[in-house]
Design a protein around this nucleic acid. Structure first.
Length: 777
DNA sequence: GAGTTTGAAACT
DNA sequence: CAGTTTCAAACTC
């Protein structure tokens, strides 16, 4: 049911790297240190960082970014006013940005403080941050989050009509214009122009000054600004009005530039421009939405429109796979402090694949060489994802809450365009999902949250009255595909593998119904300790539960006939009563067939019995689930169609194993391209159109590669002993033979399967070599 | 929504 | 290492 629309939305993004926007971002020179609070410069940095992060922050979930952004309204301006000279000269400093307004009032815009602000119990975070070391890749010290915050602030200021007095003033801008009138160059709308010295000015806007500023000494400033920012769609400018339009420039400065600045709002024109520039569809849609917005909602639209770039970011981020809540555990070779340092700068845990991102290379992007590619939802989550039915995947776009947002790009992206009000509402909703960041959160959290806002969540108490079951239902309905499970732990404190969140290497979030949860950023230490303990017992405890054969097409060029059966549960199941036909069975849940590793009794796993009999492709799997669902429905309704029940029993001809659907099952498209790479984007795009479980595409978008093997954690990749270790450590230790051997499954078996993780462990093994984590490149 | 079932995880 | 207990998800009613 993948709608063309989806693909339509995604495809343009995949080409985004070719677009001027991308080039611009890619060409942006490292941001200069913001030692003196130069509002203009800072803002420029913000814009840059914000955008850059889109391309470089694999871990940041756009959805959450939005939350963060929304969260940090000026109403919650940071209390800290630390100097912004902490960033090792990369300009993306943590600190405040003073916005000098014409009126002389100073608005302090916190870039980082809000996020970096350590919880009360962790007052030394700042110092840690200050000590942060540059990360290996790109620009280590950029804390992107803050910029998001700043952007969000701007955005919300505008949308909430608080824009007056909240934006950076044009004072500097005007001054510069006076001193450096380079209007001609600027009007060329070259992206380079934006990057130039005046770029700062270009990105600065203070709606509040619209009246004053332009009446002031530099009446031309507005004009100049407009010209300078001619990248801003004319329609928007016209539509929203000059005052807002300028404000919008801040956020939409990267949009394709309509040739006619003063043209009447013309959605088609914009569309044309956008398409021409291969700009992500989101722009277009947003524009359209904008044009349709009533004046009454105009302000909101401003915010929304201004948030286009954010939305775009979201989309990009989604494409890149989000790993926002992944815990960043220590990785051998990567000292914790180092990570912290990195995180300090960026609070980002970059995936190896990210480093490959072209844009990243040239930027001071928050890359963390050697950082584990932590994907939320590894392990059981991932497995669940793998089995997600197509239909479920389709629904993901509608999900906005909880991890779904984190994982699935589509939720807030172009797929669900909404009006300004809707946007606000959603944003607010998202905001509610934020958690408190904890100490050294940078280590754990890809994206920081404002601690000040979620007091109630401190202990992991579920704030939502929704019962766990309800949530579960919800997730089943719409978010399961996004692999964003929500735990309901009551006694484990979410520090045991019982907890799906913990097992998946992600923090519990608001949607979780857990009680006494310690799987929160604020309890990082405990989480880490616990994790270590668990890993000491079982080094691969956090490894994906399902391992799958490498892609034949990639490795050998063989027929890429992938079926769920080509993957196997790392330990095998131990089902006694479920016949491996229920989700109780992890094999079944993971959409993989049982193998010799399984100790199940009466195995009827539709994906492949222990004895190697039937196999189900992705479609089969979906059908199977559907059938099961039907069975349930039938039972509840009439119970008359018992015949359907028989569908549970795998009656799969041998040839089914090679049925077309099998190819869909693998997360392939997603897999191959490195995160951040344009190809990856395309892959994601493909994923959206394919039947591949969503999780792999979105949340684990970057995962794809890992699945393919390149990114496979050392734990499993190239370390057969580890695989053996899996078995050894598994309850089934007695069984030594590799999974699915001798089965007539896929061609993969012939050539000696290369077992790889179906997903990257969100919690890389402590023993994992850092480099191995990033085999790519 | 409450209760039951199930099997993994944890414990002994 | 086997058996038992604990746990939370999956499932049923």
């Amino acid at each position: 049911m993948d709608t063309p629309e989806r693909s339509k939305v995604v495809t343009p993004i995949s080409k985004f790297e070719d677009s001027p926007v991308f080039n611009f971002i890619n060409n942006l020179s490292p941001i200069q240190p913001v030692k003196s609070v130069n509002a203009a410069q800072t803002f420029h940095s913000l814009s840059y960082a914000s955008i850059t992060s889109i391309f470089t922050s694999p871990h940041v979930n756009p959805q959450k970014e939005l939350r963060s952004l929304l969260r940090h309204s000026f109403s919650e301006l940071p209390k800290h006013e630390t100097s912004s000279d902490n960033d090792n000269g990369h300009g993306l400093s943590v600190g405040e940005v003073q916005t000098i307004r014409p009126s002389g009032c100073t608005v302090k815009c916190s870039l980082n403080e809000a996020n970096l602000d350590p919880p009360d119990e962790c007052p030394d975070v700042s110092s840690d941050l200050a000590k942060s070391e540059p990360c290996d890749g790109g620009s280590p010290n950029h804390n992107i989050t803050p910029f998001y915050i700043a952007r969000s602030d701007l955005k919300w200021d505008v949308s909430l009509d608080k824009r007056k007095g909240l934006f950076l003033t044009q004072v500097d801008l005007q001054d510069k214009h006076d001193s450096e009138p380079n209007e001609e160059e600027l009007t060329q709308c070259g992206w380079e122009n934006l990057i130039g010295d005046d770029a700062d000015n270009l990105l600065i806007f203070d709606p509040s000054t619209e009246a004053d500023a332009f009446d002031g000494p530099n009446e031309n400033s507005q004009e100049n600004d407009v010209k300078l920012c001619n990248s801003f769609p004319s329609s928007l400018q016209s539509d929203v009005g000059d005052d807002v339009a300028e404000g919008l420039q801040l956020n939409v400065s990267f949009l394709p530039c309509p040739e006619e600045m003063n043209s009447v709002p013309d959605v088609d024109h914009i569309k044309e421009q956008v398409e021409m520039d291969q700009t992500p569809q989101i722009f277009l849609e947003n524009f359209q939405n904008h044009s349709l917005t009533s004046d009454r909602n105009r302000k909101l639209d401003y915010g929304f429109t201004s948030g286009i770039s954010i939305a775009c970011k979201v989309e990009f981020q989604q494409q890149r796979g989000t790993r926002r809540r992944c815990l960043n555990f220590e990785v051998p070779g990567v000292p914790k402090m180092s990570l912290q340092s990195d995180s300090t700068s960026h609070n980002l845990i970059s995936c190896p694949s990210d480093e490959e991102h072209p844009s990243v290379d040239s930027h001071p992007v928050p890359l963390r060489a050697g950082s584990p590619c932590m994907l939320p939802g590894i392990g059981l989550h991932l497995n669940t994802l793998a089995k997600t039915s197509r239909d479920k995947l389709l629904t993901r776009g509608a999900m906005l809450s909880g991890r779904r947002l984190i994982s699935m790009p589509s939720s807030a992206g172009p797929l669900s365009p909404f009006t300004g009000q809707e946007h606000q509402d959603k944003s607010l909703s998202i905001q509610r999902d934020l958690e408190l960041p904890g100490n050294e959160i940078q280590d754990l959290m890809i994206v920081q949250n404002d601690a000040s806002e979620v007091p109630a969540l401190t202990n992991g108490e579920d704030l939502r009255p929704i019962s766990p079951k309800k949530k579960r239902r919800k997730s089943e309905i719409g978010s399961e595909s996004d692999s964003c499970k929500r735990c309901n732990c009551k006694k484990s404190q979410c520090l045991k593998l019982y907890c799906e969140c913990f097992a998946a290497g992600v923090f519990c979030v608001e949607p979780c119904s857990c009680q006494g949860c310690f799987n929160k950023p604020i309890h990082q230490e405990k989480v880490l300790t616990t994790r270590k303990q668990i890993e000491s017992r079982n080094p691969i405890a956090f490894a994906p539960k399902v391992i799958r054969a490498s892609e034949p097409s990639c490795d050998t060029g063989e027929d890429a006939n992938k079926t769920p059966a080509s993957a196997r549960h790392k330990r095998g199941c131990n089902c006694k009563k479920s016949s491996c036909l229920k989700k109780y069975c992890e094999c079944y849940q993971g959409g993989v067939g049982c193998s010799v590793s399984c100790r199940c009794e009466g195995c009827k796993n539709a994906f492949g019995r222990k004895d190697g009999i039937s196999l189900l492709g992705d479609e089969e799997f979906d059908q199977e689930e559907e059938k099961n669902a039907c069975e349930e429905t039938d039972k509840s309704d009439e119970g008359q169609q018992n015949a359907n029940i028989q569908t549970d029993i795998p009656q799969f001809p041998e040839n089914m194993s090679q049925s077309a659907p099998t190819q869909d099952f693998r997360p392939p498209q997603t897999l191959a391209p490195p995160v951040g790479d344009s190809s990856q984007l395309e892959s994601c795009t493909t994923l959206r159109n394919c039947d591949i479980p969503l999780p792999q595409c979105g949340k684990f978008g970057s995962l794809g590669k890992s699945i393919l093997g390149d990114d496979t954690p050392a734990i499993l990749r190239g370390n057969r002993s580890l695989i053996s270790g899996v078995k050894a450590s598994s309850p089934n230790r007695k069984r030594v033979s590799p999974p699915h051997i001798g089965t007539r499954l896929t061609p993969n078996h012939k050539g000696g399967r290369k077992l790889i993780l179906k997903s990257i462990p969100s919690f890389p093994s402590l023993n994992t070599d850092v480099n191995s984590e990033n085999p790519m490149k």
